[in-house]
Amino acid sequence: MMTAFESSCAATTDRPLLQVQGLTKRYGARIGCADVSFDLFPGEVLGIVGESGSGKSTLLSCLAGHLTPDAGRVVFDTDQGPRDTATMAEPERRRLERTDWAFVHQNPRDGLRMGVSAGGNVGERLMAVGARHYGTIRETAIDWLGRVEIAAERIDDRPAAFSGGMQQRLQIARNLVTGPRLVFMDEPTGGLDVSVQARLLDLLRGLVREMGLSAIVVTHDLAVVRLLADRLMVMKGGHVVEQGLTDQVLDDPQHAYTQLLVSSVLQV
């Protein structure tokens, strides 16, 4: 007999959260990414790895609606049923960006408002979806700062006064505050030193598990996907050359490029 929890899991994992079919983006004659297809199920974390210029970031921008793809479909399972976000009207897509989606930039300066206090940064998405009670917004902001390990007394400080790791954690809090279902991450640990990276990854892994988030993580750091991702996609020259379960791909790489990628990681 199934428990209520199991049946709800079965009900939600039946249908993919995001279906990508034949996604192509060209920059003139050059290829950004070509013919990318995959399904992402609720609660699943997909890693996209590849060298610089392999089309990872182009793919992510197309998925998140920052770029318009030249061909293909990006079908997201919205609360009104599956919808193609590539052809969706701008107001609808912006509503998705504020509620069901989140985007964590590599550089926190791109994702934060540097002139606005930490509390304001976290509260912005709440206010954008209609929160109008200062006390509640502030409580939620304090709660979220705590969850990303930022002291509550820093709530009125501007992000400029924060260290790089804190800025990145603040950016994560700001994005997750409205309880999104899908998080896009572009090199979330880029530019951080290794000990801060480890803490951030630990935090991210905890939040993803705890909130049952689906995530697409673009990175060139194999350690990041090893820790975070359930499945892995390897890109080269705009094409997906190999995909599968993370451990499977990393431990038994089939494609020559993946073998090269795995073997070029320094062993300390």
Binding site: E90, P91, R94, R98, R113, V116, S117, G119, G120, G123, E124, R125, M127, A128, V129, R132, Y134, I137, R138, I155, D156
Partner: peptide
């Protein structure tokens, strides 16, 4: 202009929030 078009006015309240916080 896009924000006016889409009635995306959350940012205006961020300004008021900052006022109260400070």
């Amino acid at each position: 202009r896009k924000m006016h078009e889409l009635e995306d006015y959350g940012l205006m309240h961020v300004k008021l929030y900052e006022d109260i916080a400070r």
